[in-house]
Amino acid sequence: MNNEAYNFAYLDEQTKRMIRRALLKAVAIPGYQVPFASREMPMPYGWGTGGVQVSAAILTPDDRLKVIDQGADDTTNAVSIRSFFKRTAGVQTTTATSEATVIQTRHRIPEVPLTEKQTLVYQVPIPEPLRFLEPRESETRKMHSLEEYGLMHVKLYEDIARHGHIATSYAYPVSVEERYIMDPSPIPKFDNPKLSQNAALQLFGAGREQRIYALPPYTKVVSLDFDDHPFEASKANHVCALCGAEHSYLDEVIVDDEGNRMFVCSDTDYCESRRAQGLTGKSAA
């Protein structure tokens, strides 16, 4: 692929205009899933085609792009998407969260608070929070339009009845501005509080399912729960072995054949900048 053969950021201008229209509608109705005519992208469905299309539609030549997968800049799919935009849009890229204007993510929200100058683009596999309770799209759209959400709490009730806890640990459903119930994409529930009142614009793209939705800056987002079983943003009860962070989301890494484990920040940029400041954990000799 050479740069001249394709339009800026791969998609043709007509397609971008169509996506931008869907984005505007999504921003106007926070949490509502807007259908859009998703295109086949040169990467498979499930690899982030929704997020890529949203990024392609909003990128400008002055943007600085960061791409993370599982919180890390160096995971293979993040590397692949970043190099796609480097090649097709020629935009600057960065791994520093604070320097990025557009951040495309799969499964995480960065630890450092975002600003009004930033946009966070999520890759979404299944945008419909009611999907596993009701498989029919025609029915779930009706449930949203009529605000019939009782079933969602039935699911949480059943969890507690069976396990004593709400047994949803990621893609934890939220209510947006007390209207639409939304799937926040498969981020761990630890990240859910960051969805609410976030200064950045948050855009969600589901390519295969042909849906776009959005949370404008400072939108109120509440994780569903019961009064006597309140939502908890849980994580592994450890500190990062590399940077000593106590309140970041941690990956568990198996370090030897005996199954010994250590816990390190999943947000690689966060961890590295802490270490650059001289902060250390017990394994960072």
């Binding site: 498979p44 469905y45 499930g46 690899w47 085609t49 997968d69 599982q70 919180g71 995971t75 293979t76 799919n77 499964h107 995480r108 596999p125 640990s169 990621y170 893609a171 498969p186 981020i187 761990p188 529930k189 630890f190 295969r208 849980s234 592994a236 989301y249 941690l250 990956d251 568990e252 999943s266």
Partner: peptide
């Protein structure tokens, strides 16, 4: 695409 994407890293969700 959707079938095969389950081989991509999911370790954050798996950790949860």
């Amino acid at each position: 695409g959707f079938l095969e994407h389950i081989k991509l890293p999911h370790y954050v969700d798996f950790q949860a």
